[in-house]
Design a protein around this nucleic acid. Sequence first.
RNA 1: GACCCUAUCGUCCAGCGGUUAGGACACCGCCCUUUCACGGCGGUAACACGGGUUCGAAUCCCGUUAGGGUCGCCA
Length: 440
Amino acid sequence: MTVRTRFAPSPTGFLHVGGARTALFNWLFARKHGGQFILRIEDTDEKRNTAEANQVIFDGLNWLGLDWDEGPDKGGDYGPYRQSERNAVYEKHLAVLEAGGHVYEDEGAIRFRSPRKMVVVEDMVCGRIEFDMSNPATHPDMTIRRPDGSWIFHFVNVVDDIEMKLTHVIRGEDHLSNTPKHIELYNALGATPPKFGHIPLILNHEGKKLSKRDGGSSITYFMDLGYTPEAVINYLCLLGWSPGENRERLDVAEIRELFDLEHINRRNAIFDLDKCFWLNGQHILAMSLERFVQLAKPFVDKAGIPYGTEAALLPALAIVKPKVKHLSDVPDWIGFLFTEDFAMDAEAVEKSLKKPGAAARLEALSEAFATVTDWAHASLETTLKATATTLGIKTGEMVHPARVALSGRSVGPGLYEMIEVLGKDRTLARLERAKSLAAE
RNA sequence: GACCCUAUCGUCCAGCGGUUAGGACACCGCCCUUUCACGGCGGUAACACGGGUUCGAAUCCCGUUAGGGUCGCCA
């Protein structure tokens, strides 16, 4: 039997990190077992259903690299993959329930009559759980269709999972208590329930369910701020799951190989942006320059950095890659390399250039650099340090004014690498120009 | 309220009857260093509580407490 899993979001215009993690676990499980991953849009609530809201889901999943085999945009043997287009399917299954005497009308709505028995859930994550469904007061018959003919989640969700031949349903723990009801529905429809796996929830710093208002609760947040998909995937999978051996940084290929439902724990997890941030830096550090360029270039383009050709952009990105944490910081970090009209940070100028003797140091450095023939970071470093020694000052006392003079900022890529990329002419010109700003 | 799930450093995860309770983020020192970052070394910091079972419990059982979830004509 081929494994088939799904992600079934409702289009709210927002891809929640919890939803993204659910999608990730389903995707991992399917990929690990050579199965199929299906995307189904649960848009029975027509108010929320807009093209933009659908697009947010596609964009988020695509960005994360979670590809689906069947879905609204891809088609497949069990479509359509939007619930709003599946009315005939639901009518058909309702007829089955009616024929079996499983439903009744109540004020125009249709309810499912519970068999009122004990239901056992054999959960892949939680283990065996028994639910006593015998008391109608505590487990009322669920509505499956509204008087206006629209369908209720529980019913269409189960029908679609049957029709789409899903074998494993991995979802948030908030559905655990709904599962016995779903199983009753499977039974009444004459279908075998899939295997269920309920994963713990993601909480905010207050320990409450992560909501829209919480920073970092939307995948768009990570996309906009310049997180890498590899870091977000990595962080998300570490929330509630562990590959063992205290592994932290993992790439998707490793995760696909190591992932298993057995090592998912049962505790809700609090989302920690700090660790995700750290992981992002780790991934940027470890990735190839090609990948970094691919990820960073859109941010550079958006900021309108006039770098000219990509060949000119490459060295700039190369010197920034070891240090940058957010892709969205890249434009600020490289902008000064592509214009003579770069901003001089007032605080940095005050701290490094307005020091007595700064002008003389820049002058000395300028003279020393003018004689350098091998314009490479190693010899530039040697030259700068020798100049500092000659003047009887510490290296740092030369480095700081130089950095501010050349880039206008006190933070950025490594100084010598940056000077190398800048080139001799521009370096000398900027040192000259900065002398007028510097204290005598 | 009923039912279900959960309970190890501030946070994420190891541990699955015998450990000086381990790693990571964050935090604090020190080192390296041109700032930031990276890297290295070290530090603070946890088994919710009470009963059992056992020669021996973070690990197994029960209770209490706390947190989360479900009980919709939301999904």
